[in-house]
Simulated assay, not measured.
Amino acid sequence: MPRLIAPTVRLHDAWLEAHAEWGRGPHEDGFGLTGADEVASRAGFAAWVARLAGQPDPAPTGRHRCTYRWIVEDDRVLGGIALRDGDDDYVRWAGHIGYGIRPSARGRGLGAWALGSILDEARAQGRTRLLAVCAPGNAASERTIERCGGVFEGVGETEFGPLRRYWFEL
């Protein structure tokens, strides 16, 4: 059974395996990883995990907080999901929710399961309205967001290209 857990240094090797599977270039949303994070060494990984545990999201403004969870099964890191606070330009671009599933774990419904779980966590925090976005043509993400109750608002243009915008009313 998969579980959502807080990031932990205990899963350094498992996280590196998942990270390597994405390969160069693809975005691993839900992990809060920036180009400045050095995660290969145990010390660098520990510093990154500590930042995720209580620091602001690595958005350019650094003004809003973020709850990170890893999707784990049998000590394998299958993906990550982030629940962001705030309503600044970064959140309007990236959404309150961001998630990613490693390629070998896709097609199992893990994204929908994790999204439903993080929506429950948001409700418990008293959140009432959340934005999720995905790239046009990302049919799997579109289906996942819609299956969990996301209501399509439209396609918004951003400096990085168009993004489909969905709202969750909690």
Rank of each mutant, 00 (worst) to 15 (best):
P162D: 01
A53R: 10
G62W: 00
F152W: 11
H27Q: 09
I97K: 03
A132N: 00
G35I: 13
R102W: 15
L115D: 03
D85T: 05
Q55S: 12
G86Y: 03
Y90F: 15
T144E: 04
L83E: 01
V77C: 12
L130G: 02
R165C: 01
G44C: 07
H12D: 14
Y99F: 15
G35R: 15
P56N: 05
A122F: 02
I145C: 01
A20D: 13
W22S: 01
E157R: 11
G44P: 03
A139G: 12
G30M: 08
V151E: 06
P7V: 13
T144M: 12
R143P: 03
Y90R: 08
E121W: 11
D37Y: 02
R76I: 00
S41W: 12
E169Q: 06
Q55M: 10
A122D: 06
F45C: 05
T144Q: 04
V9C: 13
W48G: 00
T67G: 00
G25T: 02
L131D: 00
Y90I: 02
P58V: 00
H12P: 14
D57H: 15
C134Q: 00
V151G: 02
R127F: 04
R69A: 07
L78C: 02
R123A: 14
R165F: 08
S117H: 12
A18Q: 11
W113Q: 10
L83T: 00
E157F: 00
R129M: 06
A46H: 09
D89P: 07
L11Q: 13
R63H: 11
S104T: 15
P103S: 15
